[in-house]
């Protein structure tokens, strides 16, 4: 049996990644195009970025989106971490099946259903639509993603460390903050980032649940995209892609470094004992 990559493997990886990255690369390249025509290259220019910065509507939408994303991801991380902990550490309790159903279902629920149902509820309880309602909606679907990420991290590490702490008389609350939380920290950070980008990205649920004065950036982009491709939108998209890519890459490199250090320390500890 031959180990390693065959030509078929290499070709499928190359073509696969070309397919994944070429559209985004083209979008970024054409945001620096001098010409308004998207497919005609007329030289390098940053004028669309300057134009974008003049567009007050776009900037307001960007600010609203950042506020919604920050608030909702913080709440979603706390709620989602609790939910992940419940699913992997709390054993059975009444209504556990319903609980896990409510955690997994939003992950695959069509956005139009989530958006419509939340909106109808906000109307039914006479909550004014705007910043608060979008944020509540985003917390709800993001916390499920956080729960799944945290749960899989908890499933992957040795429960005996927590048990040892509790056997030595450490109360569960303190065990969580001193033992469990530091270990699952990378998953919690990843969950926060995921919530942040999910919120930054959401068009459908925001369109249903928002109200006057709380137009988000995706909604603004969507309404302009329907009129056609413009270099200005390419510029906005490039900045968003750049921000997200930098954030995700930094976070994953930091967690990977921590992970490797932890593994090295564990090996060291085993070697010393």
């Amino acid at each position: 049996m031959r180990q390693g990559l065959t030509w078929f493997n290499i070709a499928s990886l190359l073509l696969g990644f070309l397919f994944l990255y070429l559209p985004i690369a083209l979008l970024i390249i054409y945001s620096f195009n001098e010409s308004r025509l998207v497919t005609v290259w007329a030289g390098f220019s940053t004028k669309w970025y300057a134009e974008m910065l003049q567009n007050q509507g776009l900037l307001n939408a960007g600010w609203v989106t950042l506020k919604v994303a920050f608030t909702s991801s913080c709440f979603a991380t706390v709620l989602g971490t609790m939910a992940g902990l419940i699913m992997s550490r709390f054993g059975s309790f009444h209504g556990r099946t319903l609980f896990s159903g409510m955690i997994y279902a939003p992950l695959v629920m069509p956005e139009v259903i989530t958006g419509l149902s939340l909106l109808l509820m906000f109307v039914a309880v006479a909550l004014d639509r705007g910043f608060v309602t979008v944020t509540l909606a985003h917390i709800t679907f993001s916390m499920c993603y956080v729960a799944v990420v945290v749960q899989s991290r908890l499933a992957g590490f040795d429960r005996s460390i927590e048990e040892a702490a509790m056997d030595l008389g450490c109360p569960p609350g303190r065990t969580f903050f001193q033992i469990t939380l530091p270990i699952i920290a990378p998953a919690v950070v990843a969950g926060w980032l995921l919530s942040f980008t999910l919120s930054l990205d959401d068009l459908v649920i925001a369109s249903f649940t928002t109200g006057p004065g709380a137009t988000t950036l995706p909604m603004k982009i969507y309404s302009q995209v329907r009129l056609g491709v413009t270099p200005e939108i390419n510029a906005v998209c490039t900045i968003l892609v750049g921000l997200v890519a930098t954030g995700v890459l930094t976070a994953s490199l930091i967690t990977r470094r921590q992970e490797m250090r932890r593994e090295a320390e564990e090996r060291q500890a085993i070697a010393n004992s």
């Binding site: 559209p23 985004i24 083209l26 979008l27 980032l193 995921l194 980008t197 930054l200 990205d201 068009l203 995706p218 982009i221 969507y222 995209v225 491709v229 939108i233 998209c237 968003l240 892609v241 997200v244 890519a245 995700v248």
Partner: peptide
């Protein structure tokens, strides 16, 4: 992680 809308727009 990159915006769904942006990828469709591309």
């Amino acid at each position: 992680w990159t915006s769904f809308l942006i990828r469709v727009y591309a």
